[in-house]
Write a protein that binds this DNA or RNA. Structure first.
Lengths: 131, 131
DNA sequence: GATGGTGCTTCCATCTACTGGAAGGTCAAG
DNA sequence: CTTGACCTTCCAGTAGATGGAAGCACCATC
């Protein structure tokens, strides 16, 4: 299977698939004309990667998760630790974003949004943090 | 005032302040020895930038917000539009993260986390999306 | 066999917002 | 005069792709 077909089937852009090969996440074969040739196992890995990336795992996490996936003697604790760490990061990010959202939504709701210059959003941004 | 003092006062790393000058967000003066010399207006701008960045505005948004801030004949509608657009992006990101979090938390809670290889997290990642 | 269109290849640059580090000049204290 | 804390510039690297150029490969048609 050529990269175009794989891209359609996996939902990943061809560019991304080449990139994943570049960084050693997959190693498709090559046919005589130099084209990449993807096996079912490559497709499978790409699906795994796509799913893990969709859950927000970093590329390095994905690499480790794939290694664990292929290791029949893995301990599920190792997988769980990666996932739990990631969950913590997501929670931290969520808390940060929620804080931003609250402040910003408040400011937006206070701004008239007309053609006059007075603006509570700018006023807030210009606030000296010491006061 | 030298960059070290400004860094302490603004809470921004000196590196970041130099970077902000590099991309034209501030233009401190220079003293005879080549050191940057910051005026109150520079400090004020850096505080504005720090606050805007803390609210998640992109550098380009910050640039536009600063321009509006300095434009006495601005319309608050222009500020509000930037902030509302940003709020929408935050909401989109929040929704995405919450979805990730829900899926991930569920998987983590289902994983025994022991020394056996069976792992619902890996099982989920390996799921063929067509089924 | 020439041509055209699509698909594949590599390589290099670009994006965001910094951050790290090297090499070297400056300044105040002792 | 030396030491140490500052300051300077410049270059490289981070994450995870993405855009684009230049150039083969392949297939269908005329």
């Amino acid at each position: 299977m050529n990269i175009g077909d794989v891209a359609r089937r996996s939902g990943l852009p061809a560019k991304t698939i080449r990139y994943y090969e570049d960084i050693g996440l997959i190693t498709p074969l090559r046919s005589a004309n130099g084209y990449r040739t993807f096996r079912d196992s490559d497709l499978h890995k790409l699906a795994f990667l796509g799913r893990a990336r969709a859950l927000g795992f970093s590329i390095e996490d994905c690499r480790n998760l794939m290694t664990l996936y292929e290791d029949q003697s893995r301990a599920s604790a190792d997988v769980k630790r990666i996932a739990s760490d990631h969950l913590e990061k997501i929670d931290a990010k969520l808390a940060e974003l929620q804080q931003m959202r609250a402040t910003l939504a408040n400011l937006v709701s206070c701004c008239a949004g007309d053609n006059r210059p007075d603006c509570p959003i700018l006023a807030d941004l210009a606030t000296d943090p010491e006061h």
